[in-house]
Design a protein around this nucleic acid. Structure first.
Length: 588
RNA sequence: CGGGGCGUAGCGCAGUCUGGCUAGCGCAUCUGGUUUGGGACCAGAGGGUCGCAGGUUCAAAUCCUGUCGCCCCGACCA
């Protein structure tokens, strides 16, 4: 391809409104153009990169035995009503009705396709002999995000690879799941991503039923907990915390004292008012667990984790209690709850860290008052301690004795054991070998294709622009003739371009009549892996220059063998990605 | 949904507080010339509903009211 014959609108300056590197660079490099909040056009270069990611996904899914289909984005609303997901999705589901003759048809744009695929399988699969089977598609999904943001990281319309497995038993589901998990690892590795597979909230099946594939990145919206020593990795929601033992000698207990704290209801206000550390405070949260109130004690500087609380309590549903309930239980307005002197006797669930709070500060269960010198065992009693909080940086790893690190991350993939939720709702049943009718057991597996590009850019760019691995690069090689008005230069560039193209190399010839500096800046901004410079001086000696985007040093090669040399370099890098990986690991 | 910021040429911005000549600057574009290995230079040219609507005024990019859009923080996220 010749630069002058395609559309590559690069920008020298950062467009107003773009802040994070992937967004800025995708716009500046002419990969995407914005139509409205959360909706982007993929321009020629962006589309090529997206197609490459798609192709890698397709190859690995096929290799894992998954079967590609294409389902409609347009779906009947009734399908979502059957599974109760009209309500679950709320405004995120883009629904509308169209008129047809004398009736109105209600539809929704698919935000995901469990319903559609289960309906499909319910119609065509009825025997255990037809399973296992995994179906997948790569298709545009629609979600009316409350707040689209961060360029292509969170959009209302995005490209998703979604796969669904159908099995006859939990064991078989486990095998299907493991195959997808392994395929995902290969996909993200081939894309050159530095990713973590983390344990995620698992839903109905429990155990290791859900993993997210996360790319650690400063601008990621998710938080992951990672142990560098043993490799333990989990979503913050899910992460366990190793045993915390306070070995220091406890200070002598001080008498329980009531102090006035007018208007101070938050940890921050109280700590400033009384001059104490948040870590010395006992945060008392009143929850409603399946309609009964409970008190949850969390150290002032920690955050409660509702999933952990729900499990510890053994409840189906928990939520922070309504102010009315809190007032009934504590006898005080919201903000002054404490474990000592609750008006109503309700169960106390304490986080393990509460054991090591000495002379704590807690609400007095009275308006505008707190207690100091609160001592466990003397002033209040706790039968059992649980892990009820989110991990914080430096907490002990649950698997080894090392420390956990907390990092922002971008979710690029999610694998999930669904069970029978959708097959039961949509009557997807099969006859087993004992002639029993049973619901099909499902798994679902998603990849955000656009996020692969964005997270790659987010994590590997440098001051000059994007740094593509060969696997995803819109073009693997860019040819830069320094002076296109020089006839020998133009001839050499054209011949090399044609030779590389015939050899199956994705090559772009920058045939613009621009100064060399302009072309170099653009080549760096877009981030083509290999840059080939054809200059008049070198050509007189039969030499041209090649340089990898991520390396500083260029080298001269013979023009005579240039096509073969370059094709061989690219083919090797396509297979191994080793040069890119080496540079990426140096950065990390 | 709560808080904040911004809409002026294709892109980036100044001008708005304190209303006043023909609405400016840089980049990009077009023409001519000189240049040609890291975003060249000279000369000239084209390009504007100042987001939109209404109001105040002799006069509005500027003040007032409403409205639309974009971005950021927070809440939410099957």
């Amino acid at each position: 391809m010749r630069w002058s014959q395609t559309l590559i609108p690069t920008m020298k300056e950062t467009p107003e409104g773009a802040e994070i590197p992937s967004h800025v660079l995708m716009l500046r490099a002419g990969l995407i153009g914005q139509l409205m909040a959360g909706a982007y056009t993929y321009l020629p270069l962006g589309l090529r990169a997206l197609r490459k990611a798609e192709q890698i996904i397709r190859e690995e899914m096929d290799a894992a035995g998954a079967i590609e289909i294409l389902m409609p984005a347009l779906t009947p609303l009734s399908l979502w009503e059957q599974t109760g997901r009209v309500e679950a999705f709320g405004d995120v589901l883009i629904q509308f009705s169209v008129r047809r003759a004398n009736r109105k048809v209600q539809m929704a744009l698919g935000p995901t396709h469990e319903e559609v695929v289960t309906d499909l399988v319910a119609r065509h699969v009825s025997s255990y002999r037809q399973m296992p089977i995994t179906l997948y598609q790569i298709q545009t999904k629609f979600r009316n995000e409350e707040r689209p943001r961060f360029g292509v990281l969170r959009t209302s319309e995005f490209l998703m690879k979604d796969a669904y497995s159908f099995d006859t038993s939990l064991e078989a589901l486990g095998q299907s799941y493991d195959k997808m998990y392994a395929a995902y690892c290969r996909i993200f590795s081939r894309c050159g991503l530095n990713y973590l597979a983390v344990e995620a909230e698992s839903g109905p099946i429990g155990g290791d039923a859900s993993h997210e594939f996360m790319v650690p990145a400063e601008n990621g919206e998710d938080m992951v907990v990672h142990c560098r020593d043993c490799g333990y990795a989990a979503n913050l929601e899910r992460a366990e915390i190793g045993p915390v033992g306070d070995v220091s000698n406890p200070p002598p207990p001080q008498p329980l004292r009531r102090v006035d704290t007018p208007g101070a209801t938050t940890i921050e206000q109280v700590s400033r008012f009384l001059g104490c550390r948040p870590a010395d405070m006992i945060k008392t949260l009143i929850y409603t667990a399946d309609n009964r109130p409970i008190a949850v004690l969390i150290r002032g500087d920690h955050d409660a984790n509702e999933a952990k609380i729900r499990r510890a309590v053994g409840a189906q549903k928990i939520a922070l209690a309504e102010p009315r309930v809190i007032e009934e239980v504590t006898g005080a307005p919201v903000g002054f709850a404490g474990p000592v002197g609750l008006k109503q006797p309700i169960p106390l669930f304490a986080d393990r860290a509460i054991q090591f709070v000495h002379n704590g500060v807690a609400g007095a269960n009275a308006a505008d008052a707190h207690l100091t010198g609160v001592t466990l065992g003397r002033d209040f009693h706790v039968d059992q301690f649980y892990d009820l909080r989110n991990a914080v940086d430096g907490d002990p790893c649950p698997k080894c004795s090392s420390k956990l690190a907390i990092r922002h991350a971008i979710e690029v993939g999610h694998v999930f054991k669904l069970g029978t939720k959708y097959s039961e709702a949509l009557a997807a049943r099969f006859l087993d070998d004992k002639e029993q009718l049973r619901p099909i057991i499902m798994g679902c597996y998603g990849i955000g294709v656009n996020r692969i590009l964005a997270s790659l850019i987010e994590t590997t760019h440098d001051a000059n622009g994007i740094v593509w691995p060969v696997a995803l690069a819109p073009y693997e090689v860019v040819l830069v003739p320094v002076n296109v008005m020089d006839e020998p230069t133009r001839k050499a560039a054209t011949e090399l371009h044609d030779a590389l193209q015939s050899a199956g190399i994705d090559v772009l010839l920058d045939d613009r009549d621009q100064r060399a500096g302009v072309k170099f800046k653009d080549a760096d901004l877009i981030g083509f892996p290999l840059r080939v410079v054809l200059g008049e001086r070198g050509l007189k000696q039969g030499k041209i220059e090649i340089k990898w985007r991520w390396e500083d040093q260029a080298q001269m090669i013979d023009l005579d063998e240039a096509a073969e040399t370059i094709a061989a370099l690219i083919r090797r890098e396509r297979q191994t990605g080793e040069r890119f990986a080496a540079s990426a690991s140096r950065q990390a």
